[in-house]
């Protein structure tokens, strides 16, 4: 340190500090201890008490001496607050730990359920592709009608991609001797209806019938099957109109024989 300067100018440092205070006064005018802001704002009385006891002590033990080297208060996680609060209620003076809400571990199933309920209030679409005996299965011939008109698309059900609200089906048909496959989202509003035209004779032993793309297994066009089903349905419909009560039973029989099922 420059001691010579101090000897020569003993009040040098005082001058510097005074200059600083002058600068401070210019920047923050009228700030004194008396006008200092209150340190804590009072939000209201604390509900249950004063000190905080919702914690355990976590010890860090010295591996050599096996003694507690140090310890820290670890505030109890929210899952255990309910237990600790029962013990601390006996002590009157304790500031309750702010409770945290922990969400469910997997929110996706709940979200899917919520969305499906919104898009399919009757549950018909869900039932059609549920894992039940009456539901559609791979190998069945299905027909999808569009909301905005147009030719309905029929084809063999090759696979069902189950993904909650995003569940989709894959249909295969031949149009003009060219193989055509279409994916349909079953909960989409553009899909007006899905009908089972013909059920598979045997349950398929695969979940995805990708082998049906091979020439050996390819079913070809399903238009004839669909035509026959349509004709039969029309007959049923007209006879229904002619005489109600009697033919109703017949129609049921015919419907059962054809294995038809209306989706919607």
């Amino acid at each position: 340190m420059n001691t010579a300067l101090l000897v020569r100018r003993p009040l040098g440092c005082l001058k510097a500090s005074l200059r600083q205070t002058r600068q401070q006064n210019r920047v923050f005018p009228n700030r004194h201890m008396a006008t200092a802001t209150a340190t804590a704002s009072k939000r209201g009385p604390i509900p249950s008490g004063v000190s905080i006891d919702d914690h355990n002590f976590y010890r860090i033990i010295d591996p050599k001496t096996k003694k507690t080297r140090t310890a820290f208060a670890v505030y109890t996680p929210p899952e255990t607050t309910s237990h600790s609060s029962t013990t601390t209620t006996t002590k009157k003076r304790s500031l309750t730990l702010p409770k945290l809400i922990s969400p469910p571990a997997d929110p996706l199933p709940a979200l899917h359920a919520q969305q499906i309920k919104r898009m399919d209030p009757t549950g018909a679409r869900t039932a059609l592709f549920a894992k039940t005996r009456t539901a559609a299965r791979v190998g069945d011939i299905l027909m999808v009608t569009h909301r905005r008109g147009g030719e309905p698309f029929a084809g063999v059900l090759l696979s069902i991609r189950r993904a909650g609200i995003d569940t989709a089906i894959l249909l295969r048909n031949h149009l003009a001797k060219v193989g055509v496959e279409m994916w349909y989202k079953i909960y989409n509003k553009n899909v007006a209806g899905i009908e089972i035209v013909k059920r598979a004779k045997k349950r398929a032993r695969r979940a995805r019938l990708t082998y049906m793309r091979k020439p050996k297994h390819d079913m070809g066009s399903v238009s004839e099957v669909v035509l026959a089903w349509r004709k039969m349905r029309r007959v049923v419909a007209t006879s229904k109109a002619a005489s109600k009560a009697k033919v109703d039973a017949k129609a049921k029989k015919a419907g059962k024989a054809a294995g038809a099922k209306k989706a919607k």
Partner: peptide, 12 residues
């Protein structure tokens, strides 16, 4: 991140 899904609109 919990995963991806889709929202189906009223208009399809």
């Amino acid at each position: 991140k919990k995963g991806m899904t889709a929202f189906m609109g009223r208009t399809g």
